[in-house]
């Protein structure tokens, strides 16, 4: 089976068969990262450009490693080192990169829709590495893979997503991905950090963390962007962590084998206590490891690779 797409922009518009294919391919690539020589020749001669207009360590290095483990040439372009600060338009920057025969352009941008805009304008395959408050599809996929590995299935799980849903592109991708497998999704956030009409996505909304945690199979904590403090969405980090921070007492309300997940980087003591983040329920580092495999799968499948 192969993936019949030019770009990866959103999980919202992907069907379950496509997601299954990506997850299966990622599972088989996990083995590559465990080899002594962590490399396969699948993308030899291909060029991957990481075009990041927002700072990122995890996602950028994950895509970089994914490309390199498939033997592609990978370069990183970050906004601070690019022509954008010299006044070049977004489209011109992207067209210049494409003119250097980039096969893949991995885009992260603070504005929603930038990868979609570039995908429409360019021949290169575009992968969305996070756009504004829209989606972060590769993160959503690696979250699905991590849950599936630990729980054996994605069907019918109770998943509690906690934190800034309003600006939360990870949450958006997770919700779209999980809905396709019939997960029971609960969102917990202050009303100031919930987007309009989110109930229409078929999720249950809570303002209080304790009431949502009962029998939870997965607790997904979202990173609170610290720069949001002082913008009035919540009074202080202290109060936020009291209301929405995951600690040992709260974890005990969930299913005994509940998974604790976080897309990183963690604000320890804000979204989650160190005790829980480093505890037995935490699969946070497994998420990171799965990230490389999922991104290898995306690059491989977009280049026409077939899963056997």
């Amino acid at each position: 089976m192969e993936l019949k797409r030019k770009d990866i922009l959103n999980l919202s518009c992907m069907d379950r068969e496509e997601i299954d294919l990506i997850l299966q391919t990622a599972e088989s690539f996990k083995e590559v990262s465990k080899r002594e020589i962590k490399k396969v020749p699948a993308l030899r001669g291909k060029t991957v450009v990481n075009l990041f207009f927002e700072p990122s360590t995890r996602t950028r290095s994950s895509f970089e490693l994914a490309g390199k483990r498939l033997s592609a040439d990978v370069i990183n372009v970050s906004a601070s080192g690019s022509s954008t600060i010299k006044g070049e338009t977004l489209l011109d920057t992207a067209r210049n990169i494409e003119a250097m025969s980039a096969d893949f352009i991995i885009v992260r941008h603070a504005s929603s829709g930038v990868p979609h805009f570039l995908a429409r304008s360019l021949q290169s395959a575009v992968i969305n590495a996070g756009d504004g408050a829209n989606e972060h599809p590769s993160q959503g996929l690696l979250d699905l893979l991590t849950i599936k590995e630990n729980k054996g299935t994605l069907e019918g799980l109770k998943v509690v997503i906690v934190g800034d849903i309003l600006h939360g592109r990870v949450a958006h991708s997770d919700i779209h991905g999980l809905k396709k497998y019939g997960a029971d999704i609960h969102l917990v956030a202050p009303p100031t950090l919930l987007p309009a009409a989110i109930e229409q996505w078929g999720v249950t909304v809570h303002y209080h963390l304790d009431e949502a945690l009962k029998d939870a199979d997965v607790i997904m904590l979202l990173r609170l962007q610290l720069e949001r403090q002082g913008t009035g969405y919540f009074p202080t980090l202290r109060e936020y962590s009291q209301l929405y921070g995951l600690n040992r007492r709260r974890l005990a309300l969930a299913h005994p084998e509940a998974l604790v997940m976080h897309p990183g980087p963690i604000n320890r003591g804000v979204e989650v206590t160190s005790e829980v983040a480093d505890g037995l329920s935490s699969v946070i580092l497994q998420q990171v490891a799965n990230g490389v495999a999922v991104r290898m799968a995306l690059l491989f499948l977009l280049s026409g690779g077939k899963h056997v």
Partner: peptide
């Protein structure tokens, strides 16, 4: 406009 579409697209809504 703030509503279904702004939420779907992750764009800041104007209420």
């Amino acid at each position: 406009f703030e509503g279904n579409v702004s939420t779907r697209l992750g764009l800041r809504g104007i209420p």
